[in-house]
Design a protein around this nucleic acid. Structure first.
Lengths: 135, 135
DNA sequence: CCTTGACTTCAAGTCAACTTGAAGTGGCAC
DNA sequence: GTGCCACTTCAAGTTGACTTGAAGTCAAGG
């Protein structure tokens, strides 16, 4: 597959594909002239990358995951760690969603005066000590 | 309260407080000499900002919310829209978490060979068409 | 009064994840 | 066999959310 085919099949722009290759996230199998050639498998890999990105992993973290693919122990540990992290994020977002939902329906003149909203707020504030990880 | 008190009380660095003031997200009530003076209420506001950030709002969006605080119709509509957005994000992250959890336990030699994982992957890939909104 | 050091401003730097632009190359339809 | 245009490289630009640095100000303790 050439780069534009991969782009079309994956929805990832060619510029991003080149960028990812430079970062070591994907690999081309060769060149036809100057042009990169990719295996169809790369589309799968891109889906995996998209998956990781959506889960809040940085490109570097994803690259690290691919790199340690051969050592299942570390890999699995990392994965379940990330799952835990995600779990915390989900809990926070759920509280947030409920808060927003309530705020949208609440008749209090200002949300700050609504006890439910205030409760949510302090919960969210206390849970806000992730540094860079969860996004 | 002076800026360092607010910083201490809120956990937000002074540099960020100045930055937020410049952006119109918070306001100081005056100066003592050169130094900003804040009302204690600002801590609440900062919690609200943290809440918004954690929910995936940009600073501009948060500023807009504060600005439209007087027009409940638009405000509530925006809030429930954001709640819906959050809901979609949560669903995706939940699938992701389950996938990670499974991958951590799955005995398949490579995750790509596990049908459960592949199913998750394509689900995530298809759900990856948020442009800038959900992060 | 004088020093100290927490504050101030403003410009510039950083970081991640890309995108854009300019200039060059070469595969392939005609 | 030749011209087009999709590809290539490499450097620089972009965006959002801050942080850092240099240089200056001033409230307060001694």
């Amino acid at each position: 597959m050439d780069i534009s085919e991969v782009a079309r099949a994956s929805g990832v722009p060619a510029s991003t594909l080149r960028f990812y290759e430079e970062k070591g996230l994907i690999a081309s199998v060769g060149r036809r002239g100057l042009r990169r050639t990719f295996e169809p498998r790369v589309v799968e890999r891109l889906a995996l990358i998209a998956l990781g990105r959506a889960a809040g992993f940085s490109l570097d973290e994803i690259a690290r995951m691919f790199a340690t693919e051969r050592r299942p122990r570390i890999d699995r540990q990392l994965l379940s760690g990330k799952a835990d992290q995600l779990d915390r994020t989900i809990r926070k977002l759920t509280a947030m969603r409920d808060g927003l939902r309530h705020a949208a329906a609440c008749p209090a003149p200002s949300h700050l005066e609504c006890p439910k909203f205030r409760r949510l707020m302090s919960a969210a504030a206390s849970g806000a000590r992730r540094k860079k990880s969860a996004r």
